[in-house]
Amino acid sequence: MIIGVCIKSVPDTTAKIQVHPDASGIQEAGVKFVISPYDEYAVEQALRLKDEDANHEVVVFSFGGAKGPDALRSALAMGVDRAIFITDETGAAADGLSTAKVLQKAMAKENVEIVFTGRQAIDDDSGQVSQMIAEKLGWPHATMVSGFRTKGDATVEMTRDIEGGAKEIWQMPLQSVFACTKGLNDPRYPSLKGIMAAKKKPLATISIEDLGLTPADVASKITLSKFELPSVERKQTIFAEATQANVDALVKALREEAKVI
């Protein structure tokens, strides 16, 4: 079986985000990029299937971003077999559906039989691409996947997290697209051996034209602008001691000044 995994290179969670002076985006210089954390659960789940059956091949895909190849290289170091980077010359990746069209074509070309993604990339936090890929493939999808057990050759029983700590167990065909969330597994760290091996593993760079798409097919229908940092003025009334009088004063302020209780 060929297992497809889609990943995205994003600023590290600890990165301080600075907006470009013209508000057209963020400043990427000096920012450390990593595999989007939820995508690591997707990579790990694919590798676990391969751990059970070494005949499986795990192929990882990424669309766009200057640091995309680095993220793919990290996935190769975790144990993925090969990687495909699709360049984004026109900013198509700003649109979830355009991204899904590209990734779907790339995976169909490689005859992928099951797909894992993260539940959302932690840069735009849209959470769309996984379900869109499934629709384009004509396959079922599952989001917020926090449990995954194969049952026989063609069926999966998976756990899906929903609101307020509730969960659902779904039965799905193996040939589905799974958007993974925290709790599913503990992603492995690349070993030194893995990092060395990754340097020799195939990482192909292709264009959307190689997939039979034109820039018009995937033109972003979304324009992002006016990026800004949150600038909420905070009152900063800080009591220096934990006394009952101070606690009462705080509660009074929450009622009378802030009007929130």
Partner: peptide, 14 residues
């Protein structure tokens, strides 16, 4: 929100 709320942006359909 973008970057999990570290900043915001306006998305316009073009």
């Amino acid at each position: 929100p973008m970057y999990s709320g570290k900043c915001t942006a306006w998305a316009q359909i073009n």
